[in-house]
Design a protein around this nucleic acid. Structure first.
Lengths: 172, 172
DNA sequence: ATGAATTGCTACACCGATGTAGCGAGTAAT
DNA sequence: ATTACTCGCTACATCGGTGTAGCAATTCAT
């Protein structure tokens, strides 16, 4: 499906879709229109995944797990449409991205206040690591590596505990 | 410097270098030759960074910190040449990448046996998270976010401890 | 069966990036 | 001063991707 990259030529897109290139042009006048529609659709899916987790009305830890699982579900199913949507060019995608970022920051703040995260946790760094973990887990999931729930468990576990032995010395 | 992406046009490359496009063609016959040389050079730098940490002859924890700092140093300084070298197309880069991967796996295994990592740590997942953390830290470092030592400390700390409160409940 | 709609196909114009050639200006070495 | 070298510039050929037009074949509805 679709070679995954938005840099694919119309020819490749058409071939992946099993139609002729000119037929693609009948549906999408220009290449720009195609990626426009696709990224918009992906952004909507992404927003739904985050919304349906109700990150504001459930305990931080279960909210964290729920968002992670939901996002991983859409990312592993539609990964081919989810490569660097945050280019800023697409207004709707940018808006969704910003909203999700806000939601995530609020959730992490709640988690810290609830004692789930350490009091000295840098929330910005935490969020970026969280994103990276999701990205990595999605990559594994797209290669047939377990269901979304298992992956989410692993992501949250890694985010909270890391890999160090509890008894191990700490650097600083 | 160089717009960071290997998809930049020769015109942009030339402009970034402050020379005319034809002058670039005098030094590099084809575009392919340019990225070839650049990725080779970057791979060599990367290999040096890993080698000079002597990951096999120092205690796992300090080795981990040393590699991290060294790699972050080259990644933040030469980030424009370090975007997805692992395309597999470049033989030398692929070889370096594989060797580094082996080094990393050995180091993580030693760390686990030494009790630095939990006995049940999935080393493959650990390595991928470690890579992702370095990538994220490098992105921050390239935006003027602290020196390599501080970033390395943060990466290793995150990798080992995560963000969770020690007293927090665990999912599974 | 007739007409409408969709699709595949070929052909073509267009554009941007690539690569080459040659000329003229500047510069350093002797 | 002459020579050799490098660079910037213009011009051109080429190639691949894009977008458009038109035609024939197929399908579907009535």
């Amino acid at each position: 499906m679709f070679a995954a990259n938005p840099a694919a030529t119309m020819e490749q897109v058409a071939q992946a879709a099993g139609v002729a290139r000119t037929t693609v042009h009948r549906r999408f006048a220009t290449r720009e229109a195609l990626v426009e529609e696709l990224t918009g659709w992906a952004a909507r899916r992404f927003a739904e995944a985050v919304e349906s987790a109700h990150t504001d009305s459930t305990p931080p830890l279960v909210a964290l797990y729920q968002v992670t699982a939901n996002v991983l579900r859409v990312k592993t199913n539609w990964w081919f449409a989810m490569s660097r949507t945050a280019d800023g060019a697409h207004p709707e995608a940018a808006r969704v991205h910003a909203e999700v970022r806000d939601d995530c920051e609020r959730l992490l703040r709640r988690a810290r206040e609830a004692g789930v995260l350490r009091p000295d946790a840098d929330l910005d760094w935490t969020r970026r690591v969280y994103y990276a973990l999701i990205h990595e887990a999605a990559a594994e999931g797209a290669s047939g590596g377990g269901d979304a729930e298992a992956l989410a468990t692993r992501v949250v576990d890694t985010l909270l505990r890391g890999f160090g032995s509890p008894a191990a010395p700490v650097i600083a």
